[in-house]
Design a protein around this nucleic acid. Sequence first.
DNA 1: TTCGTGGGGCGACCTTCGAT
DNA 2: ATCGAAGGTCGCCCCACGAA
Length: 300
Amino acid sequence: LSSWSAKSLSFAGRLLLIKTVITGITTFWCSTFILPQACVKRINSLCGVFLWQGNIEQHHTARVSWEVVTKPKREGGLGIKNLSIWNKACCLKLIWLLFFQSGSVWVAWFKTEVLNGNLSNLWITPPNRRYSWQVNKLLKLSSEIFSCVKLRVQNGQSCLFWSDNWSPYGSLRSYLLDGSASTLGIPDHATLATLHINNNWMLPPARSERLVNIHALLTTINLNEIEDYYEWEVDGKVSDTYSMGKIYEKICLAGASVPWCESVWNKAGIPRHSFLTWLFVLNRCPTRDRIRGWGFQTDT
DNA sequence: TTCGTGGGGCGACCTTCGAT
DNA sequence: ATCGAAGGTCGCCCCACGAA
C-alpha cells in the first residue's frame, strides 16, 4: 500500500488495487484461519485510509463510511468484499472439504478427533474446551452452510433423522419441534434405517400438518443397499466445486437495492460516468481541490 | 467439578480530525 | 460552527484455561 506505484494511482486505480491485489493477499490467510476481529478491523482501516488518502501514513478520514463502501453496487456501495464475511466464506470451504475431499489428512483428523468418525455429528457437536479456538469457530460456523450439504438417502444407515439435511424441509429439529423439548418419541440419534422396520416407518401419529408432510415424504423413500451420500447444492444447483463467491453472496444479508444503481453503473457494474457520480448521489460531493487530489478530471 | 483469571468481542460514549 | 467518519476507552458478557 505504501509503495511509490500505489501512491501514484487515481481513486479508481486504488479501488481496483484493493479489490484485486489486497483482497487476493488476505484471501490466502482467510482461507486457512478465522481472523481475529481486531485483525479484520486493522486491515479494513488500512484499506480505508489507502482508498481515500492514497497514503497510509496520514490520518484516516473518509467521505463515505467503510460499511457503505463494502456494500454491493446494487445496494449503493463500491462492491469491495466485507473482509469479515469473506473470511467466513473462505473458512466454510474447510467444512466443504470435510464432506467432499476425504483424501486430506486434516479431514481424516477432524473426522476422527472431533466428529467421532461420523460427519453427521458436525451439525450436533457443540463447541467444547477440549477443542482449539479454530475448531470451535468452525463448529459455530457450520450452521451457515447446513442448507448446502444435502444428504441423499439410500440405505438410511448414516442419515440422522433429526439433524441431517435429508428432507426438503431442512433440519427436522427446527421444522417439527420449533424449540420444543419433546422429541415425539424419536431418539436423538435415530437414523432413517432404525426407523424403518418391517417395511413400515415407525413414526408417531401425525398430529400436525408438518408431521403429515414428513409422513407423506417418507412414503416416497425406498431404502436400498447403496450407502447414503452427500451432495453440494447451492441455490438449487448441484455442484462438484466450492465457489467462495457464491457462498459469500449467500451468507451476506442482502440489503435494499438503491434506485439509482443502474444510472451510475451499468449491468456489469462498470461506471457509466466517473466515480464522482457515485459521490454526488450519496450527497458526499467534495471540493474541486480534493477531486483533483484524488486523480479525477473535474470537468468530467 | 468448581472457581478465579485473563482475553476477545461488542456496544456505548466521547474525542479527534478533515471538509465544508 | 457544523457534520460525519474514524479511533480510543470503558464496561459488560462470554469463554478458555489452569489450579485446587
